[in-house]
Computed example of a mutant assay.
Amino acid sequence: MADAAPKFVAYERVSTARQGKSGLGLEAQRKAIDDFAASKGAKMVARFTEVESGRKADRPELQQALHLAKITGSTLLIAKLDRLSRNAAFLLTLRDSGVRFIAVDMPEANDLTVGIMALVAQQEREAISKRTKEALAAAKARGVKLGNPNGAAALRRAGKGAAALRETVSANADDFAEALRPIIEELRQDGYTTLRAVAQELNARGVLARRGGRWHVSSVRGLLERLFETSV
Rank of each mutant, 00 (worst) to 15 (best):
A209W: 02
R211Q: 12
R211G: 10
A162W: 11
A164N: 05
L155I: 06
A141E: 15
E185A: 10
D175F: 07
D174N: 04
P182F: 04
L155W: 08
N203T: 06
L146Q: 11
G143E: 10
A209E: 10
S219C: 01
E185F: 08
S170I: 01
R142Y: 03
H216D: 15
L208F: 13
L195C: 06
V198N: 02
N172H: 07
N150C: 06
L165T: 12
L208D: 09
K160P: 00
I184D: 00
K160E: 13
R156Y: 04
R196D: 15
R214M: 12
L187D: 08
A135P: 01
K133P: 07
A204L: 14
G206Q: 02
T168Y: 00
R214N: 09
R166W: 05
A135F: 06
A135C: 12
S218Y: 13
A139S: 14
R181D: 01
R211Y: 07
L146H: 11
R205A: 07
V169M: 01
V217I: 14
A164E: 14
G206R: 03
L136M: 14
V144T: 15
R205Y: 09
I184A: 04
A158I: 03
V207E: 05
R166V: 02
G212P: 15
A173S: 06
E167I: 03
E201I: 05
F176D: 00
A173W: 00
A162T: 05
N150Y: 10
T194I: 05
L202N: 00
G191W: 03
D175S: 12
Y192D: 02
V144C: 13
R210H: 08
K160F: 04
K160I: 07
T193W: 07
